[in-house]
């Protein structure tokens, strides 16, 4: 018996039955529509535009789904008291947190996988076959999934001690700020004002760095993405999300479920 697996499967089942994946239909329709529209333009423009548009849309959809589902993971279970019955069974609180996270990652993986499939089909239709940037596209898709994994971990952490609305606001705010982490670091390096330098550098290292995970522009312009960046980004997300999950487990473990 594996409580983490059971909770993960149930979370996935909930997401499927909550019709979250219906968003895919909308996304797929948008892809096909965009593909048909872009084929009316020149080759050089339509490939770039389609890749840029599709990857941005994929990120946006994914983030919305991750925040929407993630912030309700724990808060909704406490609010509706379903967590009480669950924890009366041989399920530890940390197992519940990890199970929820795993279930949501699985949901996002399926969701993103299907959206990516729609994107690839549309791209193939536009380009009538292969194009030189498959490796870049695969890396860009992986990075989008890593962003979603990080946002989900943030949402999960916040939902352990705040309401679903606040958890969503906090997660989105950190996602937006995290997209400027590189700018913040550059500012910290150039400024001469010591307190501002320390603050900017400290925040840039502490905040989740989403800017390094955003390679949409590079992918759409067929610029090479280094393999080392793939490993570094993956390692970074694993460590950062792991730390967030540890904090979420510790918070829920010490919390009275009134």
């Amino acid at each position: 018996m594996n409580p983490i697996g059971a909770v993960a499967r149930n979370t996935f089942r909930e997401a499927i039955r909550d019709r979250i994946l219906f968003s895919l239909v909308f996304f797929a329709a948008a892809m096909i529509g965009a593909a048909i529209l872009f084929t009316q333009m020149s080759f050089a423009i339509d490939a770039e535009a389609l890749i840029n548009f599709s990857l941005t849309a994929l990120t946006l959809f994914g983030i919305i789904i991750a925040v929407f589902l993630g912030n309700q993971l724990v808060a909704k279970e406490i609010e509706r008291r379903t967590l009480y019955t669950l924890l009366a069974h041989p399920v530890r609180r940390w197992q519940f947190v990890l199970g929820k996270y795993a279930g949501l990652l699985l949901t996002l993986l399926v969701n993103c996988g299907l959206m990516a499939l729609a994107f690839v089909l549309a791209l193939s239709y536009v380009l009538h076959g292969t194009h030189p940037g498959e490796g870049n596209l695969a890396a860009a898709l992986l990075f989008i999934f890593l962003q979603l994994a990080l946002v989900t971990a943030l949402a999960l952490l916040f939902s352990c001690f705040s309401s679903p609305v606040l958890a969503a606001v906090f997660s989105l705010a950190l996602f937006l700020v995290g997209n400027f982490a590189d700018d913040l670091r550059a500012m910290g390096r150039t400024t001469q004002h010591v307190p501002a330098k320390l603050l900017a550098l400290g925040c840039s290292y502490l905040l989740p760095n989403f800017s390094d995970l955003n390679v949409v522009t590079a992918a759409s312009h067929f610029q090479p993405i280094r393999l080392s960046l793939v490993f570094l980004n993956t390692g970074y997300v694993v460590v950062y999300a792991g730390a967030l999950l540890l904090a979420a487990c510790a918070i829920l473990e010490g919390r009275d479920l009134k």
Partner: peptide
């Protein structure tokens, strides 16, 4: 926990099941 059963007051369950 394996040897315990619990019914909370005014229970609410996963309504998608």
């Amino acid at each position: 926990a394996r040897q315990i059963g619990y019914l909370p007051e005014a229970p609410y369950f996963y309504d998608y099941l």
